[in-house]
Design a protein around this nucleic acid. Structure first.
Length: 403
RNA sequence: GGGCAGGUACUCAAGUGGCCAACGAGGGCAGACUGUAAAUCUGCUAGCAUCGCUUUCGGAGGUUCGAAUCCUUCCCUGCCCA
C-alpha cells in the first residue's frame, strides 16, 4: 500500500470537492497504519438499466481507489426504485417491482465491471436494510433532519419557490441514501457534483447514529454529446458503456469542439500534461480539432473495446461520412415472399419508421435509398429477388434478403 | 374546510363556439453544406388513406347543426386563509 501523500495525489486527480480533506488524511493514516482498506461507497439508481461514460467518470475514480488497495461498496438502490421517485420533469417515474430492480441491478453491475475490479467490490442492495425498517424507525430517522435543512437543496428550493409540487417522500430520499452510509459504514462516498447535498446529509446522519462521518468526494458532471445538457439516457445525448465501437466513435465525433479537452480529461482520465498540451494545441491552431476529436474518440473506443476496435471504428467512420460509402458490415433482414414489399411497409416492419405516415415523410424528405439510389415514390415496390441495401438517413443500414 | 389560479400534442406554451390536427419555441427526424453524427440554412414532426377520412386538447356526461373553447360532475396541481 502506498503512503498517505502518494495516495492523496492520486485521489485528488480530477475531483471537484474533497471534504473535509483533514478527515480523509486521518482515515488514510489509520488505513495505512492498520493495513485496513477504506470502504468507498457509491449508490446506484437501478431505475434505468444503462450506464454511460458520464457515470464512468465516477467509476474510474472508484477504480483508482481499488488500485490503491481500498474496497468499493456498490449500493443498488432497489428499494427506492421500487417506490418510484417523481422528481423533476419525468412525472410518473414508474415504480418497478423488486424483480425488475434486481434485474436492472445485475446488468448495472455487469456494466460497471467494465471499469471496476469486481474482486475488490462489494455489491449490496439497500432493500436489505430499508425494507425491514418499521415506521417507528423511519420517524426516528426523519427526526434527525429538519425541513429547513432539506430545503437548502438547490432543486427543492427552486421547485418550492416556483410553486412546483414536492411530495413528502421525496424528502425521504436524501435521508434513506444517508442511512445507507450508516448501514455500510462507509469511510468516503463518491458521486457527481449534483450529489453533493445528498452526500453531505450522509455525514450528518452518520454522526447522529454515532458513526464516524464519511468524507465526500464529487466528480464533475460530463456534458452529453449535445454539449449543453448533462449526459443522460432520457436526453439521448449519452455514450453507453455497452455501445458498439461504431456508435461510441460516431457519438464522440458529434461532440462540439469545445468539449474535446474535457472528454480527454474525464472520459479518458488522460495525464494532466496531455490535456494541457491538447488545450494549447487547439488554442494556437497547431492541432486540428477534427484530428483531436478522432484521437479522443479512438481512445474512448479502445478503453471499452480494445485498440483494434478503435482503429476499425475510425476506418468505418471515414468510409460512411467522409467517403459517403456503406458500412463494412450490414445486418441482414429477411423478408418472406408473401409480404407486401412496398417501401413504406418495409420501413415500418424493419423498425426504421414508427408508422406508415412517418415512413412516407421519411421518403418524401429524401431520406431513403436502395442500393445508393434515392427512393422518392412512397408507393415504390421493392424487388427483393436479389439482396438490396436499404438506407434510412445517415445511420441506418439494412440488407434486405429473401427469407 | 373556504377562496383564487391552473390541467392543451415529446416538453414549454398560444388558442376561450366554426377559418383547429390546433400559433410559437425547444426537442426529434430528414435534406443541403461541412473536418464531423458539430455549427448554419431548409423541410417535416397524430393515425389511416393516392380527393378524403378517423382519433386528440385531465376523466365522464351534457348543451349545440357544430366545442380545446359553454354547462354539470369527478380527478389532479399550485397559492392564500383556517
Amino acid at each position: 500500500m502506498l503512503g498517505v501523500t502518494e495516495q492523496l495525489a492520486v485521489i485528488r486527480q480530477n475531483v471537484v470537492d474533497l471534504l473535509p480533506e483533514e478527515d480523509l488524511v486521518r482515515k488514510l493514516e489509520r488505513s495505512v497504519a492498520t493495513r485496513t482498506p477504506m470502504r468507498v461507497k457509491l449508490g446506484l439508481d437501478p431505475s434505468r438499466p444503462d450506464i454511460h461514460i458520464g457515470h464512468a467518470v465516477v467509476l474510474t475514480k472508484l477504480r483508482q481507489f481499488q488500485d490503491l488497495g481500498h474496497t468499493v461498496v456498490l449500493i443498488i438502490g432497489d428499494f427506492t426504485a421500487m417506490i418510484g421517485d417523481p422528481t423533476g420533469k419525468s412525472k410518473t417515474r414508474p415504480a418497478l417491482t423488486l424483480e425488475e430492480t434486481r434485474e436492472n441491478g445485475k446488468t448495472y453491475v455487469d456494466q460497471a465491471s467494465r471499469v471496476l475490479a469486481m474482486d475488490r467490490t462489494e455489491v449490496v442492495y439497500n432493500s436489505s436494510w430499508l425494507d425491514t425498517m418499521s415506521f417507528k424507525d423511519v420517524i426516528a430517522l426523519s427526526a434527525k433532519y429538519t425541513v429547513a435543512q432539506l430545503l437548502e437543496r438547490d432543486d427543492f428550493t427552486k421547485r418550492y419557490r416556483g410553486g412546483e409540487p414536492i411530495s413528502v417522500h421525496e424528502f425521504l430520499y436524501p435521508l434513506s441514501q444517508a442511512y445507507d452510509s450508516v448501514a455500510v459504514r462507509s469511510d468516503i462516498e463518491l458521486g457527481g457534483t449534483d450529489q453533493k447535498f445528498n452526500l453531505l446529509v450522509g455525514r450528518e446522519i452518520m454522526r447522529s447514529y454515532g458513526h464516524e462521518p464519511q468524507c465526500i468526494l464529487t466528480m464533475p458532471i460530463l456534458e452529453g454529446t449535445d454539449g449543453v445538457e448533462k449526459m443522460s439516457k432520457s436526453l439521448d445525448n449519452y455514450i453507453g458503456l455497452t455501445d458498439s465501437p461504431k456508435d461510441m466513435f460516431g457519438k464522440t465525433m458529434s461532440i462540439p469542439d469545445s468539449l474535446i479537452a474535457k472528454y480527454l480529461r474525464y472520459a479518458c482520465f488522460a495525464a494532466n500534461d496531455d490535456v494541457l498540451a491538447l488545450e494549447k494545441g487547439l488554442a494556437d491552431g497547431t492541432i486540428h480539432p477534427r484530428q483531436a476529436k478522432v484521437d479522443v474518440a479512438k481512445r474512448i473506443v479502445a478503453q471499452y473495446h480494445g485498440q483494434a476496435a478503435g482503429d476499425e471504428a475510425f476506418a468505418e467512420f471515414e468510409r460512411i461520412f467522409v467517403k459517403k460509402d456503406v458500412p463494412d458490415q450490414i445486418p441482414d433482414h429477411g423478408l418472406t415472399i408473401d409480404e407486401l414489399h412496398d417501401i413504406v411497409s418495409i420501413l415500418v416492419s424493419v423498425g426504421f419508421s414508427s408508422s406508415k405516415s412517418d415512413a412516407r415523410r421519411l421518403i418524401t424528405g429524401g431520406g431513403v435509398s436502395l442500393d445508393g439510389e434515392r427512393v422518392t415514390d412512397p408507393t415504390h415496390i421493392v424487388d427483393v429477388t436479389s439482396p438490396r441495401i436499404l438506407r434510412a438517413g445517415k445511420l441506418r443500414f439494412l440488407r434486405l434478403v429473401r427469407a
